[in-house]
Amino acid sequence: MAITERHVRARNRAAAPQDRAPAVIEFRGVSKTYASGDRGLEEATFAVERGEFVFLVGQTGSGKSTIMRLLIKEHEVSSGTINVAGKDLTAITRKEVPYYRRNLGVVFQDFKLLPNRTVYDNVAYALQVTGHKRKEIRAKVPDILRLTGLSLKLHSYPDQLSGGEQQRVAVARAFVNHPPLLLADEPTGNLDPETSIGIMQLLYRINRTGTTVIVATHDNAMVDRMRRRVIEVSQGRIIRDEHGGGYSTAEENTAEFGLLMRGEPAPAPRRLSSPGDFFDDAFKD
């Protein structure tokens, strides 16, 4: 689906909210207060549709991670309801949580790879523990590693890989089951800008297969360049929800970046309004 087409759809959706298809994620007045008394989230209401690519931005401690944790049902909401694929998360019992999580892919800043297993085994592990047969594993893992560009690193251990490659392994593990929803909490937080592009490219490619992708990040350059939907959280409140938005201020979208994301040769990037942006400098020549 062409990127422009998706924008048209997004604009139409915004224009006629009553026509919306059932959302993949729906937060309705969700508040989360931790046992310590800290407020993680206050009255958050938003919906994410199928196939969307959403950036969740905000400072550290603003509530991005709270949203992620609520979505993987690591925490329970204090009030309000979260629906994922039409199912109320509060209705999921403890026993059902593992089965619910099999429909999610999760990627973290610190990769969470198992250091004593090879790349192949790390990805296969996700399938092993969810009870897949050896035959399926042997069929699926090389496929997903090819998609993430790790075919040559099959038998390397995580400590023999670069940070970017490790994160690719993590993405591969998250996506090997082809979950309809992929959550990434600071996936580029530990990576340099160049490598970050690679990871975002990968997430974008996954998004184009129809998977809904939610990325919590404070990588402002990345958000500004990708121009996807941005939900900004501050002190537990959602203060902005904008399609094709930037990290902080509304700016024009960059068609060039879209081309880059699709893996086509990037045209010479033009300077953006903010000078001294290291990310732009990296692309200048």
Binding site: P98, Y100, R101, A126, V129, T130, G131
Partner: peptide, 17 residues
């Protein structure tokens, strides 16, 4: 504990862990 964490994240059942 890392393995347990990963197992939980990818949806292994309690008894599987």
């Amino acid at each position: 504990r890392r393995e347990v964490e990963v197992m939980k994240l990818v949806g292994a059942t309690d008894w599987f862990i």
